[in-house]
Design a protein around this nucleic acid. Structure first.
Length: 487
RNA sequence: GGCGCCAUCGUCUAAUGGUUAGGACAUCAGGUUUUCAUCCUGAGAAUAGGGGUUCGAUUCCCCUUGGCGCUACCA
């Protein structure tokens, strides 16, 4: 039975890199009929941000990645924990960690350390000066447990460090990178229990992954150097470690680690901008993985079918917004019209106080989908339908025409339209088409200014569709405004 | 500084010893369409450098260079 987990820290929002990590972990579980769990790693109380867990779950839920076990939403989108290996929030598991730290202490695999921050800084400074590897110098390594306990009773502050074996090497097979090897003498005696009684990540992740029976630890590459510590802890406890897979990092365009400074990194930012979850998922999945042939459009179901960790790339990948835009447009164009209207519903209601059932807007949403990149852009592009637009008259002039001609054409067109009673798209199309021919005009001369006059912007659906939706009165009114703009 | 990971077009990547080094995004140039967009066609664009191994290296090995990560009582 495969069991994977996604273990975020509640420090604010879901990072797009974490979305990919969660996605891969989810896929690996699902393709083997396994379980995907969500565990909250909140052992750093300083960095905790109120509301993060809801935030994380909301983004994951949007993407369609829902945990089978652990922290999750119930039907009413309330945060709950489900499963028999809980609690799944680390701050609620302190007694568990203490038990295992005590075991290590008793067995002599760990020791109390009383060194001050000042001393530690000093040690590191000297090591750096001597061009040595930095790390704890073992000052408290040989204080006996009894002696240490006595010191603690007198009120001295202490942390617990693991007693890393300094002989030989730690070698392991990473599912993505193959064999990786570290010299043990360069691995630090890592603090596993902080003076505030909370465990560090290193202890908590090992204890929890074991107790929750995780079979595949899928995480970011930044954890690769600390894997020997984790392996050593598994050894000390006599546990079998999971398989490890360290994912390549996502990068900024300048190839540094993807950060907030250079653009949006929170999934919720992309939700707000109107990206589709299927596009986002497809995009991040392909940042580091591909099926080996030339297909690029994959649904979550298809990913589950074809993904494999072994084919994940080793090198980090730049988070390329232009490709995301392309994916989003592809999904937008493919989308069923009714579905599209439904997805625009809340945007229209929130931004423009318009109900999709109240106006023929649903008709136009479908027309606009080949022009827009995101849902927000799509809805914004259509706002001319329910509110008049401010625009510069210059955009009324087609590139191969001039203002004088354009004004004349619009005036003539207006007179012609005033005598038409049937403003349906089909009728307008044939009648205006004939009229253009009869007057020896080109389509560009008439259709471009007509469309811009009706929409007040350069990007919009065609002139006949708009006229149909606006109706005769409103259409003529807008053409009149346009003519005046050309004076 | 130490340790580790990595290295194909601008970007995401395919090709695991033999290809005119392929595709996609982006860019540029044409074309279709009753306008913009859509759509179609085409073009330019890469194996970081140096050594090996081999009949033959993008591919295997070594070195250099470069990038990134870790080096906390943060994850």
């Amino acid at each position: 039975m495969i069991r994977t987990r996604f273990a975020p820290s509640p420090t604010g929002y879901l990072h797009v890199g974490s979305l990919r990590t969660a996605l891969y972990a989810f896929i690996v579980a699902k393709q083997n009929g396994g379980d995907f769990l969500l565990r909250v790693e909140d052992t750093d109380r300083e960095r905790f941000v109120e509301g993060s867990i809801e935030n994380l779950l909301r983004s994951l839920d949007w993407a369609g990645i829902n945990p089978d076990e652990g922290v999750q939403f119930d039907l009413n989108k309330k945060v709950v924990q489900a499963g028999d290996k809980g609690p799944y929030i680390q701050s609620e598991r302190l007694d568990v960690y203490h038990k295992y730290v005590d075991e290590l202490l008793e067995k002599g695999h760990a020791y109390y350390c009383f060194c001050s921050k000042e001393r530690l800084d000093e040690v590191r400074k000297i090591q750096e000066l001597n061009k040595q590897a930095t790390g704890y110098d073992g000052h408290c390594r040989n204080i006996s447990l009894a002696e240490a306990k006595k010191k603690i009773e007198t009120g001295e502050k202490a942390v617990v460090r693991m007693k890393m074996s300094k002989e030989g090497t730690t070698k392991f097979t990473d599912l993505i990178r193959g064999t990786v090897e570290f010299e043990n003498k360069l691995v630090d005696d890592q603090v596993i229990l902080k003076s505030d009684g909370f465990p560090t990540y290193h202890l908590a992740v090992v204890v929890d992954d074991h107790l929750m029976e995780i079979t595949h630890a899928i995480r970011g590459e930044e954890w690769l150097p600390s894997t020997p510590k984790h392996l050593e802890l598994y050894k000390m406890f006599g546990w079998t470690p999971p398989q490890f897979a360290h994912l390549p990092l996502l990068l900024n365009p300048d190839r540094s680690k993807l950060s907030k400074r250079q653009g949006d990194v929170a999934v919720e930012d992309y939700i707000k901008k109107g990206y589709l979850p299927e596009a986002m998922l497809n995009f991040v999945a392909f940042l580091g993985w591909n099926p080996g042939d030339e297909r690029e459009i994959f649904s979550l179901e298809e990913l589950v079918k074809e993904f494999s960790l072994e084919k994940v790339n080793k090198a980090g990948g730049v988070f390329n917004l232009e490709k995301l835009d392309w994916y989003n447009r592809e999904y937008l164009k493919k989308m069923d019209d009714e579905e599209l209207v439904l997805r625009c519903k809340s945007l229209l209601e929130e931004k423009y106080k318009i109900s999709i059932f109240h106006f023929p807007i649903s008709k136009v949403i479908a027309l606009e989908k080949e022009r827009a990149t995101t849902l927000v852009e799509l809805v914004d592009n259509l706002r001319f339908i329910f509110e008049d637009m401010e625009y510069d008259g210059k955009i009324l002039v087609w590139k191969k025409s001039d203002a004088v001609k354009t004004k004349q054409n619009l005036a003539n067109l207006s007179d012609f339209l005033a005598n038409l009673s049937d403003f349906s798209k089909e009728n307008l199309q044939s009648k205006v088409g004939e009229w253009v021919k009869e007057n020896n005009l080109t389509n560009g001369d008439v259709l471009w200014p007509m469309r811009v006059a009706l929409a007040g912007q350069e990007n919009s659906p065609g002139p006949f569709e708009i006229a149909d939706v606006l109706g005769k009165e409103k259409s003529l009114e807008r053409i009149k405004v346009a003519i005046n703009k050309l004076s």
